[in-house]
Nucleic acid binder design. Structure first.
Lengths: 343, 343
DNA sequence: CCTCCTCGTGGAATCGATTACACGGTTGCG
DNA sequence: CGCAACCGTGTAATCGATTCCACGAGGAGG
């Protein structure tokens, strides 16, 4: 592959001049410029980004470590992050942690080794030494969706508290008194906060949330299935189940079907994170929708601010309840076109 | 950030010795080794992958350019590719083309600039000059799922022909004679091959596939919706619709619901690409499942073979029909656990 | 006419690693 | 005892860019 030296030789100038042309530095004669451009053309020269990064100490690359690519919520987040980054001239390298702290560390490590300019993380756990150290060392970093408490890193997230309160009101209005939750890992903020918000909202309606109705999941479908089976085995099973993410809701749906039970007649179901498929499940699932695209854009904006030396503030956007039929009442969305973020 | 020089100074040795320790080269004294390791520890040194890549001319990175991340099929493919690559010591950089040739080119370009060791592509179109040139220039490359005819690059894909024949048999057995297809872009191999296989299979049953029943989609949900509306507006609408990918099936479902029609009573639906959600849609959707995980692994294996100088052959794996209720008959999968690839 | 800028250009240092080569000191074998 | 092989180590070249500095030419101004 042709290097800058080859171009310089072909054009009959020095490498310095070639570099200046390529970075459109003002002081280059028109003559030299055209000769260089011609040489670039004939050699099919493409600048080596690796060499450039070494010299300039910047890669124009962002790292994004997410907890689970197979979760449509994170997929959409990744998509909007890449889009926003591209608009600002950055590339994105995605690392999929699969909800495993060791994998998360692996990705953070390789991204750091590659000298990415900044890191966007949705932490799987309470924070490994590696990540804590990176944050302390001043690596530009922004948490998105989930965060690690006590670390001085901006957080971009959606606040589900109000929406969860709406959901609880909806459940109570429909007469459900025995409601359960499938929680995410306690080590994640979204894992614990959603339970807390749910419990508090229930308390406002005088409804308790016993331990037996608080299942421990890990944000993966299989755990939703397992926890739901536990609920159904209870002498007094819950009348409604709230899954803290969409995959666990899918697992719950599986478990309920496996018993031959019907939603919502036999048991109500709701989920955190709305996805296009929830419109078409049987029945359509009531869910809490995050402004995913806006979240991704805000996260990139914050991270690039940090990279460029500014000090962005944390951003919290509201989530909202989307009522469908899985809790009993609720309209159907026959007319709604499939949701897609803007291109 | 500490460099190899700092480590050398701290350990009281030369940079060469530090490098030898880090790459565990045999001829280093135990004494030097321990001193270097200690220095690495105290300085928190991490080798700069950028510098290393520049020198060694390899990045241990694979590029993966897929047509659409929001499509669960490609998400799963990406996941299995990353997993297989990681096992071989490679990282993966994913580029999402969003079914747009210009975006695809953008990603190929940046990946090439980064000097990735090899490229895995599922082309959105018939092949841009850039990609053709890269292939000709000898960039290690493998096509996955889709390919560009006439280019000497190994292809890893699933053959849906047999499964499509099974599907057609299934449709005919249920008495459907007016069947339509929502095709993908003709410029993609999967776009045209699936139509061809479908048409041929229908011919075997003496069923024609008129132009009016051949809708042109682009593998995105919205196009499935639009095409399906066209079908429903026909004086004689089809009795069954086959969508060439899962997103267009989702769009079709939308359009059908919007008219207040029921699947499968009013119209049958089937899709190419099976995804976990199809089990839970209303009704569960009959689909053709590709061995996605195996596809990803085979693709990585082939690409790494090419990188290491060997000459891998193309791989074709069989797809299979999964019958559910959306075409009329078909069992339900209440007992089936949620599908996930192995971790 | 001389000095001082400005402008276009090239030489060379630099980024952080790897690695060929040289060198001094042991060790082994004849 | 002497020569060769070997071992551990350091010096320096190298990868492909960017960029500081110097230099020569030419124009402006005194």
């Amino acid at each position: 592959m042709a290097s800058i030296k080859d171009v310089a030789a072909e054009a009959g100038v020095s490498v310095a001049t070639v570099s200046r042309v390529l970075n459109d530095h003002p002081s280059v004669s028109d003559d030299a410029r055209t000769r260089v451009l011609a040489a670039v053309q004939t050699l099919g020269y493409r600048p080596n980004a690796v060499a450039r990064s070494l010299r300039t100490d910047q890669t124009r690359t962002l790292g994004l470590v997410i907890s689970d690519v197979m979760n449509p919520y994170f997929t959409e987040l990744a998509r909007s992050v890449e889009e926003a980054a591209r608009a600002l001239g950055y590339s994105v390298i995605i690392g999929n942690a699969d909800e495993r702290p060791d994998l998360q560390d692996h990705h953070v490590r390789t991204l750091l080794d590659r000298r990415i300019d900044g890191l966007l993380v949705s932490p799987t756990d309470g924070g490994s030494p590696l990540m804590l150290e990176a944050a302390r060392a001043g690596t530009p970093m922004v948490f998105v969706d989930r965060w690690i408490p006590g670390v001085d890193v901006p957080v971009v997230r959606a606040d589900g508290q109000a929406a969860i309160r709406d959901l609880v009101a909806h459940l109570c209005r429909l007469g459900h008194r025995r409601v359960a939750i499938i929680a995410g890992p306690a080590a994640t903020t979204t894992g614990s906060e959603r339970v807390r918000a749910f419990r508090e909202a229930l308390a406002e309606h005088g409804v308790p949330l016993p331990d037996a109705y608080t299942g421990q999941g890990d944000f993966q479908a299989e755990s939703g299935r397992r926890v739901t089976e536990g609920f159904l085995d209870l002498p007094e099973p819950p009348e409604a189940v709230f899954a803290a993410d969409n995959l666990m809701a899918l697992g719950a749906l599986d478990a309920i079907r496996a018993r031959g039970l019907r939603v919502p007649q036999d048991i109500a179901l709701a989920a955190f994170d709305d996805i296009p498929w929830f419109v078409h499940t049987d029945p359509p699932v009531t869910a809490i929708a995050q402004p995913t695209g806006e979240l991704g854009r805000a996260a990139v904006r914050a991270l690039v601010d940090r990279i460029e030396g500014r000090h962005p503030r944390s951003v919290t956007l509201p989530a909202r309840l989307v009522v469908r039929r899985s809790c009993g009442e609720g309209r159907d969305e026959h007319q709604t076109p499939v949701q897609r973020s803007t291109s």
